[in-house]
Amino acid sequence: MLEHFSYIVTVFLMVAGLFIIMAHGNLIRKMIGLSIFQTSVYLLYIAPGKLIGGTAPIIAPEYGIYSNPLPHVLILTAIVVGVATLALGLALAVRIREAYGSIEEDEILARDNAIEDAEEMRA
C-alpha cells in the first residue's frame, strides 16, 4: 500500500479532477477540475523519476545511482501548457460572463436555446 502511495494519490487526483469537470455546471469550477486533472499528470511523470538515494546525473566515482532528470524537464513544459490553458479558459469565462451575464452552464444554455427556438420558428 505505502510503496504505491504516489500512484494512489495520482489516480485520486485524476478521478477527482475529471469528476469535478463533469459534475459542476459552473465554468470556473470546471476550470479548477481541469487544473487538478492536469496536475495529476505532473505527479505521474515526476514520481517515478525519483530514486531514493539517487543524485543528479553527474558522472563521479563516489556516486552510483542517478535520478532521471528528463521527466522534470518534460513536466516543466506541461506546466507551461497547463498555465496557458487555465489562462485561456478563465479569459473565455470572463468574456462569457460579459456576453451572457452568467457563468452557470445551464443558464447559458437556456438563453441560447431561447434564441435558437426563435430561429426555428422563423424557418
Binding site: 485524476m14 475529471l18 469537470i21 465554468l27 470546471k30 481541469l34 486533472f37 492536469q38 499528470v41 505521474l44 506541461a78 490553458t85 485561456l88 479558459g89 473565455l92 469565462a93 468574456r95 462569457i96 456576453a99 451572457y100 447559458i108 441560447d112
Partner: peptide, 21 residues
Amino acid sequence: ALTAAFQYLIMGSIGATFIVI
C-alpha cells in the same frame, strides 16, 4: 462562439491530457 470555444477547450484539454498520460 464563446461557449463553443469553452466547451472545445474543456473537451480538447481532457483529450490532450489523456494523450500525455
